[in-house]
């Protein structure tokens, strides 16, 4: 047998795995797998998505196809005088927006808040952006840690209110999807854009319904399921969806992007909508 030196300089983990009473191992982790891939991938994908959303919403262009009534979810509901009049299904609440201000300004903070406080995204960004921790059994670089006990992170406890807002936004998106059954002559019609918008709305509802706060409010807070059979039934359904919350979180990011990109390409004339009916 031989000894392997794992001593060396004092680790930057003196308050954690480098604490004096613990096994003296300088390495912040002894994991041999590629543990950094997942946080790196999450960081990259979330940054790319945010960059895309920022560019698209700030551009104020190619958000609406009047012919088929395709309205991008990033600009819905369109309530400003800057919007195409046909896109203002809920009236004109605001005057003209200055350049770079997203048309969906009224709801975007709530949607962002819903995702920011989401229990899955919390895991994703705490790990990939804040490295707290970057991966399991990999020491984090921070000297102190208070979790979600202090402002601003204590506000994560308001997730349920963002969930309520997300329901309203999902209703608006559903309305947009119904309006997208719009033919060239103004009557009923279906195009590829309609199908994409409907698929996006179905996924958004699934993501919203699979939310942990929804699961709690619908029945999780009960102590006696047997006294509330309907709520128990609903809770079991939401619980089933809840196990897919992470997948739905990513799928809806993709579906939002695809829906907006498709509408953008059709609205800008780069693509002709594939019409299935009228």
């Amino acid at each position: 047998m031989a000894q392997t030196d794992v001593g060396g300089s004092a680790p930057d983990t003196a308050s954690g795995v480098g604490s004096p009473t613990r096994a003296r191992i300088a390495a912040r982790t002894l994991r041999t797998d590629r543990w950094w891939v997942e946080p790196a991938l999450t960081f990259t994908l979330l940054c790319l998505w945010l960059l895309y959303a920022l560019i698209r919403t700030a551009s104020q262009r190619a958000y609406f196809v009047a012919e088929y009534h395709y309205l991008s979810p990033f600009s819905s509901p369109c309530l400003t005088a800057s919007c195409d009049p046909a896109a203002r299904d809920f009236g004109t609440w605001f005057g003209k927006f200055p350049p770079f201000v997203p048309f969906g300004l009224l709801v975007l903070p709530f949607l962002l808040g819903f995702r920011l406080t989401c229990y899955y995204y919390r895991k994703a960004y705490y790990r990939s952006f804040w490295l707290s921790p970057p991966a399991c059994a990999v020491a984090e670089p921070h000297a102190t840690y208070t979790g979600e006990t202090k402002f601003p992170l204590i506000m994560q406890n308001l997730h349920r209110y963002f969930f309520f807002a997300a329901i309203i936004v999902s209703l608006v998106n559903t309305f947009d999807a119904v309006k997208a059954f719009h033919g060239k002559d103004g009557g009923f019609g279906i195009g590829l854009g309609t199908i994409i918008m409907v698929a996006n709305v179905v996924l958004l509802w699934a993501y919203t319904a699979s939310c942990h706060s929804c699961r709690h409010l619908i029945g999780g807070r009960l102590r006696h399921f047997s006294k509330h059979p309907v709520r128990y039934k609903l809770w079991t359904q939401v619980s089933r969806l809840n196990t897919r919350h992470m997948q739905l979180a990513w799928t809806t990011l993709a579906s939002l992007l695809v829906t907006d990109a498709y509408i953008g390409l059709v609205a800008s004339g780069h693509l002709t909508d594939l019409r299935l009916f009228n």
């Binding site: 059994a137 706060s213 196990t243």
Partner: peptide, 29 residues
């Protein structure tokens, strides 16, 4: 409140208990 839901506890549980989704998050709620 110190738990930030990064789910490592669930990942290592040999009994496959959904510690975070079924225990900690419901308690946080």
């Amino acid at each position: 409140g110190m738990c930030n839901i990064t789910k490592c506890c669930t990942e290592v549980c040999p009994e496959h208990i959904k510690i975070t989704d079924n225990g900690i998050i419901p308690m946080k709620e």
